[in-house]
Design a protein around this nucleic acid. Sequence first.
RNA 1: GGUACUGUGUCCGAGUGGUUAGGAAGCGGUCUGCAAAACCGCGAACAUCGGUUCAAAUCCGAUCAGUACCUCCA
Length: 468
Amino acid sequence: MFQFLFYNTLKKEYNWFNPIRLGKVSLYTCGPTVYNYAHIGNLRTYMFEDVLKRGLEFFGYQVCHVLNITDVGHLESNHDFGDDKLVLAAKKEKRKVFEVATYYENKFFEDLRSLNILLPNIKSKATDHINLMIELISALIRAGYAYENSGNVYFRVSTFKRYFDLIGNQFDIDKAFNRIDIDTLKKDNRDFVLWFSNSKYPNQLMKWKSPWGIGFPGWHIECSAMALFYLGRKLDIHCGGIDHIMVHHTNEIAQSESILQHQWANIWMHGDFLTHENNKMAKSMNNFFTLKDLEKEGFKSEHFRFLCISVHYRHRLNFSFQALLGAKSSYEKLLSIAKSLNSNNDKKIDLVKNSFSSNMIKMYLKQLQNAILFDLDTPKMINVLWEVLKSSLCRYEKKRILKLCDKILGLNLFNEQFLTLSQKEKIEKRQNARIEKKWELADELRKELQKERVFLRDTVQGTQWYIN
RNA sequence: GGUACUGUGUCCGAGUGGUUAGGAAGCGGUCUGCAAAACCGCGAACAUCGGUUCAAAUCCGAUCAGUACCUCCA
C-alpha cells in the first residue's frame, strides 16, 4: 500500500496520511471571496490543492472535496474596481450586489477550468447556508463558548485551551492588537466575532434575520458550519493559504472543536505565497496579475500551471514574466515531446503493455511515486520526468510514464486536437508540393494553415502539426 | 513590538555533510529547400564573517538583506 507523507501545520512535522474511512478522503479547501477577480497568487493555492486531490485520486482514494464560495461579507469594498461596469452598477443600485458575487464566482470557475483544476464535488456558497451558521452560533452560545453583546455575538477565546496549537506559539495579544481599532463590545481583545448586527460597516448590503438582530455572519463561522455539514464530525484534510493559519483556521478550529469536543481535522496543509518583486501580490499595491493579464502577454494558462508546479507548494514563488517565459519554453518543449510520442500507432502500444517489467522503468516509476507521496514534491517529479524523456527507454514506455504523470500534474499534455477536412487536404497538398520541390506553393499552404492557427513542423518522422 | 520564513549562476528553481540537479536564456556546432523543432558541446552559483568536521550550499553562531503574518487577505 502506498502512503502519503504530508507536512501537517498543526503538528509542525511530517505525518503519514491515514484516512478516517478506508479508501476515502474528506477534503475541505477554503475558497475565494467573490468580490473581485482572482489573481494568480490566489490561483496558485488552488493549483496546489488540485495536485493534492489528483495525487490522492491517482493512488485510488475516493475524494470528497468541498470548496466554499464566500459571497457574504465586505462586498462593498473600498478598493478601486477600475472600470468594471457591473461593480459600478452594483454600487449605484445596491440590490445588484448578489449579481456582483455571481459574476465573480463565474469568472473564478472560468479560471479554474482554464487551469485544468478539477472542480470540487460540492461547491458551497455561504449565502445558501446562513441558517446553518445561525444554528452553530446558537449552539456555541448555549454551551458557553460564545456570548452576545448589543447585537453582536463573539467567541470567547479563553474557553478554548488549544487556541494557539495551529499558530505554534502564543503571541503577545495586547501588543499585537495595539494597531487595531479596539471593538469595545468584546469582553476580551482576543475574542472574535460570530455574528454582526452592529457592525462598524453600517452600510453592509447583505443582511439576514437572526436571534440577535438583522445582520450577517462573521467570516470564520461559514467554513466551520459548511465543513461540518457536508463532511461530518471528522475531517481528513483541511487546506488553504498560509495567511489563514494565524486567524481564519485558528478560529475555525476553536469554533468546530468547541462543538465537537475532539480534534476536528487530522491534517492541515497550507500553500505558500506567490510574490512579485518580492512583494506579496495585493490589490492595494497594484502589483497583482490575473490570468487574463498573462494571456494578454501571450501566455497560456498551462504555462502558468507549469511554473507553479515546478516550485514546491510550501516554498514562496517569486513571479516574474521572465520566469514565466522560462516555464513557457519548458512546457512547450514537453508538449512537443508528448506530441511526437503521441504520433505513433496506438496498436503498437498495446503490444508492449506489459513492458513495465524492466528495471529501469521500475526505478523511474518508484522515483516518481516517492516524489508525489512525499509531500507533493512536484519539482522532483518534473526533474525525474526530464530524465525519463532523455533516457534510452522506448517511445511507448516514455509516453506511458508521461501520461501517468500528467494525471497528477494536470498539464494537458495529451489533449486531443482535431483538424478539419480542408486542413488535412492542405497538409497533404503541401506534402506533394514538397516532393515535387514546388517550394512556393508549399510555403503558401503553410501560411494559409498558420492563419487558421495550425502550425507545421517537418521532421525526420514526417510532418507534424499542432494547433495553437 | 511579537512571531515565522527566505537568501543558490543572467532568470526560475532542486539540493540537509562527500558524486554535473533540472529547465529557461546565452555562446559554439550538427541537421534542414525555407521555417520550426531536434540533437551535440560550452561556460557560469551557493548573502557576509566566524565555528564544528578529513570534508559545509547543507550543521552551529553572528551579521546583513528581504518577505510574510498579528481579526480584509490564497
